[in-house]
Simulated assay, not measured.
Amino acid sequence: MHRLIRRAWRSAGTVACGMVLCLSAATVPAQAASARSVPEGATVNARDRATAAVDAMMGFYDEETGRWDPDSPWWQSGNALQALLDHMAKTGSRTYLPQAEHTVEIQRRPLPWWPEGGGEFRADSTDDTGWWALAMTRMYDLTRDKKYLDIARLDEAYLREYWDDTCGGGIWWDIPGRTYKNAISAELYIQLLASLHNRVPGDKVYLARALDAWHWFEKSGMINDQHLVNDGLNTQSGGCANNGGTTWTYNQGVILGALAELYKATGDRRLLTSARKIADAVVTSPELSPKGILTEPCESRGDCNADQASFKGIFARNLAELDAVLPGHPYRGYLRAQARSAYTYDRNSLDQYGLNWSGPFDSADIGRQESAVSLLTAVL
Rank of each mutant, 00 (worst) to 15 (best):
R10T: 15
A12S: 08
L23F: 08
Q31Y: 15
A32L: 03
S34P: 01
P39I: 15
E40I: 13
E40Q: 13
A52W: 03
A53S: 13
M58N: 15
M58G: 04
E63M: 08
P73H: 02
S77P: 01
G78M: 01
L85I: 10
H87G: 06
Q99F: 06
A100P: 02
E101M: 00
I106M: 03
Q107T: 09
G118Q: 13
S125A: 13
D127G: 06
D128A: 11
W132M: 11
T137S: 14
R138T: 15
L142D: 08
R144M: 11
D145S: 14
Y148G: 00
R153P: 00
R153V: 00
D155L: 02
E156L: 07
A157D: 12
R160M: 04
R160P: 05
E161A: 10
D164Q: 10
G170K: 02
G170N: 04
W172R: 01
P176M: 04
R178I: 07
S185N: 08
E187T: 05
S195T: 13
L207W: 11
W216F: 06
G221D: 11
M222Q: 03
Q236A: 15
A241V: 07
G244C: 03
G244T: 04
Y250I: 01
Y250Q: 05
Y250K: 05
L259C: 06
A265Q: 07
A275Q: 07
A275D: 03
K277A: 13
V283T: 09
V283F: 07
S285N: 12
S285I: 01
G292K: 09
E299R: 03
D303W: 06
N305W: 00
A309Y: 07
G313N: 13
N318I: 00
E321V: 02
P330F: 07
R336V: 15
A337I: 09
Q352F: 06
N356Y: 11
S358P: 02
V373R: 03
V373H: 06
S374D: 00
L375W: 09
T377D: 04
T377Y: 03
